Amino acid sequence: MVGKREHETHPPQAGPAPAGKAAGEVRTLADIARLAGVSTGTVSRALAGKSLVNVETRERIRAIARQYGFRPNQMASRLRSRRTGVIGVVIPLGHEKRQHISDPFFLTLLGHLADELTESGYDLMLSRAIPDGTSDWLERITGSGMVDGVIVVGQSDQFDVIERVAASYRPMVVWGHSRPGQTHCVVGTDNEAGGRIAARHLIDTGARRLVFLGDTSGIEIAMRFRGAAEEAQAARIPLSHLSAGLAGGDMEPGIRSVLSEMDMGIDGIVAATDLIAMSALRTLHEIGRGVPDQVQIIGFDDLPLAAQTMPPLTTIRQEIAAGAKAMVERLRARIEGEGANSLVMAPQLVRRASTRT
């Protein structure tokens, strides 16, 4: 039956090689199938990481293959299937050209994606795209013949380009914001809800003059600002906006200037990312403003570094590991010609010491 997981009876865990079958003589899928007590097709699917084979059987077959040093002829298999075994992962930087792959958010998400892709039997080809006024950066990747599918990390200001390519290229999944009726498959957080939660938390803990730090040229941060602004307006709390960039230390002079010169009544900061929040924390320390007693600050992402700042950073959590897993699952389905819908994950408030209780 299509879609049914395979459950086959099998003998106990394989031990030493049977008589007449030395380790070096286990050369084919049929040899592995004989040892595992399953069909050759099940071995093929298990070694390819197919979910149709249940986890216990898949892991047992892989253990046998490792025990006998079995290496399938991947090149021949890929030629037969017209697959490359490679997934392209591209980061478009249309609105923030100075940002680097070494950005902590990218590194965190890429680490989880690499783990998921490797477990699924794929290699990863990483690319940082700076559109610079051109609109074919994504088609150059999808049409290269070098990849079986593409993961796009962030939409930047390239939403329309991604939409156009998605209309004719199905094996693609994007980390980002989901709009009603869009074509491309997205996995990401409800950014507008996250912005509302961040502003509401500051207001509930006594903040009365807010500032949002972040460049809203990209859709994800624009939606975080929109949510924060709506929440502040509903509470009749003023909210200013500083378009702080995302490019490491380049943002700090602007943050230092605005936090030094703005009315000292500013007592709550909604940062578009944890990285921006960390720069603001450092700047506030340098200019002698206490956190959270004088100024409260909340970030967005919940990167591993967020718990290590002084004070530890209150933030809005994106489920990055779960999101990476969902992206790879959806991409695999699309590669196989199956349907896969977008996933919008709920943001969560993580309370730490940079805001009051």
Rank of each mutant, 00 (worst) to 15 (best):
I335T: 02
V147S: 02
G339E: 15
I219E: 06
R256V: 01
A63N: 09
D31N: 10
A326H: 06
G290E: 15
M327S: 07
A322C: 05
G154L: 05
R356D: 09
L138P: 01
T183K: 13
I221G: 05
I91R: 09
V53M: 01
R128S: 11
I162E: 07
R27A: 11
P304K: 08
D215E: 08
V26I: 15
M262D: 05
F159I: 09
Q296Y: 00
A326F: 04
G15K: 13
G41Y: 00
P238L: 00
V211R: 03
M262G: 06
G245N: 14
E261Y: 06
A114N: 12
S127I: 08
A23Y: 15
I276H: 07
H241L: 08
S354A: 03
P238D: 02
E6L: 15
F106W: 08
I61W: 02
D274P: 03
E192D: 11
G24A: 15
Q67M: 13
K4L: 14
P347Q: 09
R98E: 15
L239H: 03
G133M: 07
V153P: 05
A63R: 14
V26P: 00
D157K: 12
A17G: 12
A229V: 08
A167G: 09
R351P: 02
L305N: 13
P104K: 12
L93G: 04
K50Q: 14
G248N: 08
E252M: 13
G85D: 03
Q158D: 14
K21H: 15
V165P: 00
M264C: 12
S102G: 07
Q67W: 14
A321D: 12
L305T: 15
M262R: 06
H177D: 11
E116C: 09
A322D: 12
A33V: 02
R334A: 05
A198T: 00
D190P: 00
T216V: 13
A307V: 08
G194C: 07
S156W: 07
E119M: 10
A48H: 11
R289N: 04
V187Y: 10
L79M: 07
I237P: 01
L305K: 12
V152Q: 03
L52V: 15
E329R: 14
Q74V: 05
R256E: 10
V328S: 06
A63G: 06
D204N: 13
F106N: 09
D136G: 09
I335M: 09
G20L: 06
P312W: 06
P92K: 04
P92N: 07
T205W: 02
V295Q: 01
L29K: 00
M172F: 14
S279T: 11
G268H: 00
A17Q: 12
Q182Y: 06
V165M: 07
T309H: 03
